[in-house]
Design a protein around this nucleic acid. Structure first.
Lengths: 200, 200, 200, 200
DNA sequence: AATGAATGAGCATTCATTCAT
DNA sequence: AATGAATGAATGCTCATTCAT
């Protein structure tokens, strides 16, 4: 008698199409027409499932942030020691190669730029950044404790690692191939190790 | 009697107005009307001095990149040792406080996002990144030589520092106040110091 | 066992939802989705019971006009003399308080505006206005006969009363609270009484 | 060196085109394209001179209200006695024939409907209604004083006249030709006269 | 009878660019 | 050099209507 709702699936398709489009053209040039075309849907349908274009963006940010969380859940299960966990985390986020997702990275960079000016995007972006920051703090605290080092500078250390990661995303998208291969993960790990040697 | 051309001044005013506007609204929302209004000029005049909107952006990227070079010229004159030069450089780019220029930083972040998709912007962005990278390589090479360390990992070290700086810019613009005060300069310096202790 | 058609009930529900919506948002903003939502039905079902949106409007006009007729049927039964009938009629249409129906009044005003441009709405609107006009003529003729006055100006008198009533509806909807309380019914009755005294 | 602004003239042309369009199609169907076409201008130009469509409407309401005021200024100069002034006023607003402006009347009716739901339109509409009401009160007070009658019911009398006038506009637009010719002005005057005879 | 997804034409609005002055 | 009106294509969004289920 009634139609079965397929809203969730359609919404996912649309969000996925936005990710692809935004990675390629940026948010402003990712027009509804273009997204719809990439999703194989009619423009009107996008507004049936999402009230505004901004709402699709918000959903994408949530999805991307969730992806990061999922990766952590996976790695946390595998790694044994705090050191392994930290290194696995860094590799999961920065290592190029098999698990790398350039589209998601490029989309994330565009979202970061959008966050500078759209308060609503900024709010969710900051939520994601905050979660990542807290996770890094926890991982670092565990690690430092294991090696018998004081946890004094964990905040700044975590912030530095976060900046290194975000900067690596930016440079990978806007200046691909200009920097040494695989520098980001290596340097992030070296950064942490260096701090251990340097601290009293 | 003679009409002296004020083209150069006008162009500078327009570029400056674009910087202010882009920092506030992003490039896409920085309309010719808005830029003109912020510069106190008429919209038509902008197209008299610049053929297209993109041309103004290109000029801004050059200006911003040049600003960085100028800062180096200043610091290179003051600093005595390679270590002082390196630290002065890092502080010049990352230190918050007196010399800090949030508008330029925000504009640079937006330009970085624009570089992902506009090939012409990307070209100049990469030029600026390349110059910064080369400068960092030179500073690091000098420094390592002074302390008697091998210059093997200079490339990756420079790339890591560059990423940390760009990431710090991004986070300062999109998530202001979320991270510890002054972490960026401190961590950049700690990053370099740590590598010295760690390397054989 | 047998499916009894609930078409008539559904149609009434839809028309009622249109009345509520039109009173609140006007006809143009009364979208099918909104009406359906207010009726607790699905949008598709509205087009099952009515071919077009305009058809629902036409039905509403008929309903509203019929309501007026019903009120007359009720009052005609109660009132004894022509004077009582006339006053009862005026009160039924204009008196504020218990019997007042602001939603119907507001909807009627919107329909009046719609009638200016939609020929099909205009036709039914005019039918309703014509019926009211005829009723007023009859009531006035009876009344004047009773008091021994010539029925010469009955047409103009009825037209004037009609205009006063429609204008009162308009002002009640678009400028509520600006005019003295209960002025409309009082002035309509005074209007009629005045004519008796004035006529030779 | 510079272009001479023609903004005021263009704005007037646009408002005039809206009046013509609104009278014919109503506000919702008066699209920017249609108005522009009727004004012989490009659609974009309408948004150069007015920020939004609603702003054009607001300007039209002001214009129409101002027209009414102007008519009073003219008639006030001509008429000698309070009675003449009152009758001249009624004729100026209601008399069909030479001075009549069906386009303005139809536009006014549509605006009245729009006022029911758009708060901003309602505010200006009520301002116009309020001015007209105050004017009627003044005219009636003067008149009643002249004929030695108490001014007790001036408010309700003025409200009744106002309703009669607005209703006459509505009926003239939505049901043209259905009512006796020239009934409105005649009945308005009869209404006032009747009250004199009736009051003690 | 009923659902709700889907369509596509139409809308107000924005904006880089042009041009007459 | 400078102005500001003018253009028109493009965009996000709305909505009556259709249709498979």
């Amino acid at each position: 008698m009634s139609k079965r709702p397929n809203t969730e699936q359609r919404r996912a398709e649309i969000v996925s199409a936005l990710q692809a489009t935004i990675a390629e053209c940026g948010y402003a040039k990712a027009t509804i027409q273009l997204i719809a075309q990439k999703a194989g849907l009619s423009p009107g349908l996008l507004h049936y499932h999402f009230k505004t274009k901004g709402e699709i963006l918000l959903e994408l940010v949530k999805t991307l942030a969730g992806l990061s969380q999922q990766r952590y859940a996976v790695l946390a299960a595998t790694a044994q020691t705090p050191e392994e966990r930290l290194i696995a985390y860094i590799n999961a986020r920065l290592a190029t190669g098999e698990g790398a997702n350039p589209t998601a990275v490029a989309a994330w960079v565009m979202i970061g730029a959008e966050a500078v000016r759209q308060p609503e995007v900024r709010a969710i972006y900051q939520q994601a950044i905050g979660a990542e920051f807290a996770l890094l703090q926890a991982l670092l605290t565990d690690y430092l404790q294991t090696v018998g080092k004081p946890a004094g500078a964990v905040d700044r250390l975590a912030a530095g690692l976060l900046a290194l990661m975000e900067g690596a995303f930016q440079l990978a998208s806007a200046a691909p191939g200009m920097l040494p291969n695989g520098y980001a993960a290596a340097m992030a790990i070296a950064f942490v190790s260096g701090q251990l040697a340097a601290e009293p």
